[in-house]
Amino acid sequence: MRGIGAIYRREINSYFTSPVAYVIITAFLFIAGFIFYNLLSYFALQCIQSVRYAQLYHTVPPPMNINTWVVTPFMQNLAFTFIIIIPLLTMRLFAEEKRQGTMEMLLTAPVSSWEIILGKFLAATTVFLVMLALTFIYQVMLIIYGKPDIPPVLGGYLGIFLFGLALIALGMFISSLTKNQIVAAFISIVLFLFLWIINWSSIFTTRTAIQDTLSYLSITEHLREFIKGVVDTKSLVFFLSLTFLGLFLTDKSLQIWRWKG
């Protein structure tokens, strides 16, 4: 356990004493803010127009749902943004250690590889949580000025959090395969994009077994449940097992490193 703390503190320092964390967080908040602003403006425009139409034809304006118009699309776009952002957080975790030779010191220190892996995983998760928490300000604004349905907001955040854990673990695994950060980031982005669209090809088959498998593997489908405000055990297990898979593969990758050098 001692090792987790030491490695966690070093990683956090490394994120926040270099420009890495600030650049990534700023870029992320710019994109997230842009998405939120546009969704909200569009929603406001629709509201005004529907009231005008109602006045023009002397009818009752149709109900406008802020969850459908703002909350749900915001969550989906936020998750998509993380597909690009998370690889930038995880790419250096092991690739950098391999490149600068510090891997040799970590692996000869009296700590287990799980302590190293968890220390790094928790540090990346912390930066991710800071980003996610900062976007919660938008939801607070919605709650103050509107009446969004609360469970989908909370469910969505829980879903994106679990989704982020899975991406961080997988991204860390990919970083442990190479000495080159750019390669690690690129492969991670490709993998995450593929997991995002994996169920698209299910329309080309009528075999339900394949359809079910593809939709089970699709992170989009599981995320959709959470964003609806439904915490489904199946989706919970899916994200957690994906996270564990990433951590497990990282451990195996370190063991192979010890064999092959």
């Binding site: 320092n13 490394s14 270099s18 600068q100 030779g101 510090t102 040799e104 010191m105």
Partner: peptide
């Protein structure tokens, strides 16, 4: 206590 051939140092510390 081990000192590898290339000292394993973190340049940002």
């Amino acid at each position: 206590g081990y000192l590898p051939e290339h000292p394993p140092l973190y340049p940002d510390m």
